Amino acid sequence: MTGKQQKTSTARGRGLTRLGAAGLAVAAAAGLGLAGAGAAQALSSQAVSTVPTCRTSGLTASFGQKLGGGMNHEGVVLKLKNTSGHTCNVRGYPGLGLEDSGHRTLRSSVRWGDTYYAQDPGKKTLTLKNNQSVEAVVSWTHANAGTSGARHVNYLQVTPPANTAHKTHELRTWVDNGRLEVTALARRVPVG
């Protein structure tokens, strides 16, 4: 090899080395960009997941509009209000149960979805700041003591989603066969 050929060959080798280094730098930068995007996404999903689930102890249960109508239907708008002092999330359907005058649990069943009075808004994660409320529509039929499976109810048990403890709210009525229907919780459930 002549001196000129050797220089060209060395220059070409240095050029390839530079190209390789540049390629590695670009790949590293792209990798960091992807890692940065992944880290940013992880941080944003972490921010969402740091909002705790609303606990029973930080919520109050109350009744809004009472619903009546023909064909022995009755219902109520159930409201859950965040009184915890911090922001929390709620998602899904409240658990419901019935109690008699001595607070003994009565046999009951609950169907989630549309009710006689409202369409189901579907499950959505709702973020509640302190003092904000959500609602669900509860309905049942009642034929009073004339129905063999009628239950005389004094209280409604309300268990917020993702909880095991319940609130108890006075509800004096008859419920046929202990069957209740309830919509998912929403900011507002239109009654119609």
Rank of each mutant, 00 (worst) to 15 (best):
G70P: 01
Q157W: 09
Q5Y: 06
P160F: 05
A145E: 04
L126K: 07
T56R: 05
A30T: 15
P94M: 07
V134Q: 06
L32C: 09
S49D: 11
L185Q: 04
A47W: 11
P161M: 01
R12Q: 12
L67Y: 07
L19G: 08
K129G: 10
A11L: 14
P160S: 09
A30M: 08
G36I: 03
G58P: 04
K66D: 14
A29Q: 05
T125L: 11
A25D: 03
K79C: 11
R104G: 03
R187V: 13
S49Q: 07
A162R: 09
M71T: 13
L19M: 12
V77Q: 07
T2L: 07
S139E: 03
A25E: 03
G178Y: 01
T56P: 09
R187L: 02
Q157R: 13
P121A: 07
Q46G: 13
G178C: 11
T164N: 03
G13M: 06
E181T: 01
S109T: 12
S57F: 15
G95P: 06
L59Q: 08
T53Y: 09
L106P: 11
R14V: 06
S108I: 15
N154W: 06
T50E: 12
R179Y: 01
M1Y: 01
S62N: 07
C88R: 04
Y116A: 15
L180G: 02
N163G: 05
T147C: 10
L106V: 08
A145R: 01
K129R: 14
Q119S: 13
A22S: 15
N177G: 09
E181H: 04
T127W: 06
W140Y: 03
H169V: 14
R179E: 13
V191E: 07
S49W: 10
G3Y: 15
T183D: 04
L80Y: 01
V110A: 01
G69I: 09
A28I: 13
Y93F: 10
T183P: 08
S45C: 03
L80W: 03
C88W: 11
H166V: 07
A40V: 10
L67Q: 11
V189H: 02
N163H: 03
R111N: 11
V189T: 04
V110C: 00
Q119V: 11
V26Q: 10
G64E: 06
Q41N: 07
G95I: 05
K79V: 11
G85R: 13
V137D: 05
Q65S: 05
V153G: 10
